[in-house]
Simulated assay, not measured.
Amino acid sequence: MPVSAYRTVVVGTDGSESSLRAVRRAGALAGACAARLVIVCAYLPPRADDREVRRAQEVLGDDAYQVIGSRPAEDTVRTAAERARAGGATDVHPIAVVGSPVEALLDVVKREQADLLVIGNRGLNSIKGRLLGSVPSDVTRRSDVDVLVVHTTG
């Protein structure tokens, strides 16, 4: 599929500098293709009975707030939208989604009928990486659409 054929691009971010480099690259690509760019940040709902929340609290301790609740995710996608626009995107749609990162990205790709998913090769060298695992690997393996893995680390 030629690059110009991409109409809707989804990019994931966890707020790390590495993942924001992928967002900027996705913004440049979306701008060049005149494509719609959907920026996704997943978060865990703050429910005491949720196993993922308990696991986040066990693994991250006082830093668990970074992946729990919508406010950090909304701040992340706002910042990411600025980076995407700086990269060249004009039609930008930031969204914060409840769920695990892999499931959230795949669900948004399907819902938005995206034809490209962009992810950094290591958006998880932040504190969240200890909890979330290898999102790039899982997404690449499970995606039904093209995946662009951006080399975001030195």
Results as ranks from 00 to 15, higher is better:
105 L>I: 12
105 L>Y: 08
105 L>D: 08
105 L>M: 13
106 L>M: 04
106 L>W: 11
106 L>I: 07
106 L>A: 08
107 D>I: 06
107 D>P: 00
107 D>F: 10
107 D>E: 15
107 D>N: 14
108 V>S: 09
108 V>P: 09
108 V>A: 10
108 V>R: 14
108 V>C: 04
108 V>D: 10
109 V>T: 05
109 V>A: 11
110 K>S: 13
110 K>M: 00
110 K>C: 07
111 R>L: 11
111 R>K: 14
112 E>N: 10
112 E>G: 09
113 Q>C: 02
113 Q>A: 14
113 Q>P: 01
113 Q>V: 03
114 A>G: 01
114 A>E: 05
115 D>Y: 05
115 D>L: 04
115 D>R: 06
116 L>Y: 12
116 L>G: 08
116 L>M: 09
117 L>P: 02
117 L>W: 10
117 L>S: 05
117 L>D: 04
118 V>P: 05
118 V>A: 08
118 V>T: 10
119 I>M: 04
119 I>E: 00
119 I>N: 05
120 G>T: 07
120 G>F: 07
120 G>W: 06
121 N>E: 06
121 N>W: 09
121 N>K: 05
121 N>A: 03
122 R>H: 15
123 G>W: 05
123 G>E: 00
123 G>D: 01
124 L>F: 11
126 S>Q: 09
126 S>D: 13
127 I>S: 13
127 I>K: 14
127 I>F: 12
127 I>R: 15
128 K>R: 15
128 K>H: 12
128 K>L: 12
129 G>V: 04
129 G>Y: 05
129 G>L: 06
129 G>N: 06
130 R>D: 01
130 R>M: 06
130 R>Q: 07
130 R>C: 03
132 L>K: 04
132 L>I: 12
132 L>Y: 05
133 G>D: 06
134 S>H: 03
134 S>E: 02
134 S>K: 06
134 S>M: 03
135 V>S: 03
135 V>M: 01
135 V>R: 01
135 V>W: 08
136 P>S: 05
136 P>I: 10
136 P>H: 10
136 P>Y: 11
137 S>E: 10
137 S>T: 13
138 D>H: 13
138 D>I: 02
140 T>I: 07
140 T>G: 14
140 T>D: 03
140 T>F: 14
141 R>T: 14
141 R>W: 08
141 R>K: 14
141 R>Y: 09
142 R>G: 12
142 R>M: 14
142 R>Y: 13
142 R>F: 11
142 R>C: 12
143 S>P: 00
143 S>G: 12
143 S>Q: 07
143 S>I: 00
144 D>Y: 13
144 D>H: 15
